[in-house]
Amino acid sequence: MRITLVQGDITRQEADVIVNAANSSLLGGGGVDGAIHRRGGPEILAACRALRASHYGRGLPTGQAVATTAGNLPARWVVHTVGPVYSTGEDRAELLRDCYRNALRVAEGLGARTIAFPLISSGVYGWPLDDAVRQALHVLDTAETPLEEAVLVLFDEHAHRTALAVRAADA
């Protein structure tokens, strides 16, 4: 799978799947989650409400992933995953890696060829930027998947420069 690092707005990425760094309610929020719901339109919220009414009454567990329509986004589907909140007292890296693994698995099940990820848990969930990149790239670099391309979308120039530096250091 080809892995590309880009600076930009995840809601403008053209891919079969756009990954949403969702909160467990699946009903929208701030950051990437809010942006995806706003730009994607009411179809995404309606699909998320249906998931809450059927399979995820208590919300989507951390590290798991589920797909909905992409509404008005330039994608076919949104795969929602809930990242862990960073903790200095507990190693939650496996849960963060599970977000990427499970999103890939759901995308494969949909027949997707391309997927765009935000940097999960690196915003309000407080995950240190360089380690968030390292965890994402670890999963993407080692994934055995029929997907052709994964794009890691970094929101700003600082995050993009950090990702490029981590990529170069780990190469």
Score class of each variant (00 low, 15 high):
28 G>E: 12
73 L>C: 11
64 Q>R: 14
34 G>Y: 03
89 G>V: 04
75 A>G: 00
30 G>W: 01
28 G>S: 11
51 L>E: 09
83 G>R: 02
64 Q>V: 00
51 L>C: 11
42 P>R: 15
83 G>A: 03
64 Q>A: 14
89 G>W: 05
30 G>R: 00
89 G>Y: 04
37 H>I: 11
48 C>V: 07
49 R>G: 10
77 W>C: 00
43 E>Q: 15
47 A>W: 12
31 G>M: 01
35 A>Q: 03
56 Y>M: 11
64 Q>P: 00
43 E>I: 06
89 G>D: 11
46 A>S: 15
67 A>T: 01
69 T>D: 04
82 V>T: 04
49 R>V: 14
33 D>H: 05
57 G>Q: 14
85 V>H: 02
44 I>M: 13
52 R>M: 10
59 G>N: 05
38 R>L: 14
64 Q>L: 12
81 T>A: 10
29 G>W: 09
74 P>Y: 03
47 A>C: 13
40 G>N: 07
56 Y>I: 12
60 L>P: 07
58 R>Y: 12
40 G>A: 08
79 V>F: 05
38 R>Y: 13
87 S>R: 14
68 T>S: 13
48 C>S: 15
70 A>Y: 03
91 D>N: 12
61 P>R: 01
70 A>E: 04
77 W>D: 00
76 R>Q: 15
26 L>T: 04
70 A>Q: 01
61 P>L: 08
42 P>Q: 14
52 R>V: 13
72 N>G: 05
22 A>W: 03
76 R>S: 15
93 A>N: 03
89 G>S: 10
84 P>D: 06
71 G>Y: 07
61 P>S: 06
90 E>H: 07
26 L>S: 01
35 A>L: 06
91 D>A: 02
48 C>H: 08
77 W>E: 00
88 T>S: 11
74 P>I: 07
51 L>Q: 11
78 V>L: 08
66 V>W: 06
30 G>Y: 03
54 S>H: 13
37 H>C: 11
24 S>K: 05
90 E>S: 03
91 D>V: 03
35 A>D: 06
59 G>Y: 01
88 T>P: 03
31 G>Y: 02
87 S>G: 02
62 T>M: 12
21 A>M: 13
51 L>P: 08
56 Y>P: 12
22 A>Q: 05
24 S>R: 13
83 G>F: 00
30 G>I: 02
72 N>Q: 14
92 R>Q: 00
38 R>P: 02
